[in-house]
């Protein structure tokens, strides 16, 4: 992995955002909408359930912020690829001395930046609007964020691989993929609230352990370490599998001339 190459690819992305500030709206608009909707739902439930609710329902706000970490990391990888398709720049990048590792490394950095910007802003707004301090998650916040970032990158690689394989018609996967798993990811409700079949899917997703963990920390300040270890282990498996899929699809794309077909769109 070459840091100069990664720096150049990330620089291109930063130029894109400074040149077109309207993109910042996309980066902030939807997270803000979710924060307002789930935040005021939380306020409403708190007022009407009081002590009857099993534990602090502010977890809904925490869930919005942490889900956005995963979503933005996934978007960082998938949109990075699509930006080159849309601007007909894809062949310039893939015919430049850029290795697959350099390319993926730069998408990870972009995902990290996107997640960092939105989650910081959401964290501040949730404190101002709802007195919810995401730092209540204490040091657990660090492994939570790392695990969600890694899973987001893995999902990003999977969605990009599918777009490469199926062509521009599959572009919508760049946005849809995280929402395919959201019902099983225990973002806004616990795993045991799901039917048994769905629970099996849920237990295969690293992020469900993170969202369960977040609720545990907000409820009684502790986290079962077993959940954190399981999430990290699953993430290693997902990241490796996504990497293998991405490299294999890229090889197929070179065999079948799929990259050049993107340029002809």
């Amino acid at each position: 992995m070459n840091l100069h190459i990664i720096q150049a690819l990330v620089l291109r992305y930063l130029y894109l955002y400074t040149r077109t500030p309207v993109r910042l709206v996309e980066l902030l608009f939807w997270p803000l909408v979710h924060l307002l909707v789930w935040g005021y739902l939380t306020v409403f439930l708190q007022r009407h359930t009081g002590d009857a609710f099993p534990y602090e329902i502010t977890f809904l706000i925490g869930a919005v912020i942490l889900w956005d970490v995963l979503f933005r990391a996934q978007q960082g990888v998938a949109i990075f690829f699509l930006e080159d398709v849309w601007s007909r720049n894809l062949l310039n990048i893939f015919a430049a001395p850029v290795t697959t590792a350099d390319y993926l490394g730069s998408t990870y950095v972009v995902g990290l930046l996107r997640a960092g910007v939105t989650s910081t802003i959401l964290g501040v707004l949730s404190l101002v609007l709802y007195s919810f301090n995401v730092l209540e998650l204490q040091w657990y916040l660090i492994p939570f964020i790392i695990n969600l970032l890694v899973f987001g990158w893995a999902l990003g690689m999977i969605s990009t691989a599918l777009i490469v394989r199926w062509g521009p018609a599959a572009e919508t996967l760049a946005w849809a993929t995280p929402f395919f798993i959201q019902p099983f990811a225990a973002v806004f409700y616990p795993v045991d609230g799901l039917p048994p079949v769905m629970q099996a899917f849920s237990k295969a997703l690293p992020c469900s352990y993170i969202f369960e963990g977040m609720r545990d920390v907000l409820k009684d300040g502790t986290l079962p370490m077993r959940d954190l270890v399981l999430a990290s282990g699953l993430n290693v498996v997902y990241l490796a599998a996504a990497g293998v899929l991405f490299v294999s699809v890229l090889k197929t794309a070179r065999d079948k001339g799929l990259l050049t077909k993107f340029a002809a769109q």
């Binding site: 291109r12 130029y15 894109l16 040149r19 077109t20 930006e83 080159d84 601007s87 007909r88 720049n89 894809l90 062949l91 310039n92 050049t260 340029a263 002809a264």
Partner: peptide, 14 residues
Amino acid sequence: STYTQLPGNLLVGQ
């Protein structure tokens, strides 16, 4: 190549 372009949103120098 006539089939490629550089990103249209960026300045020429960028």
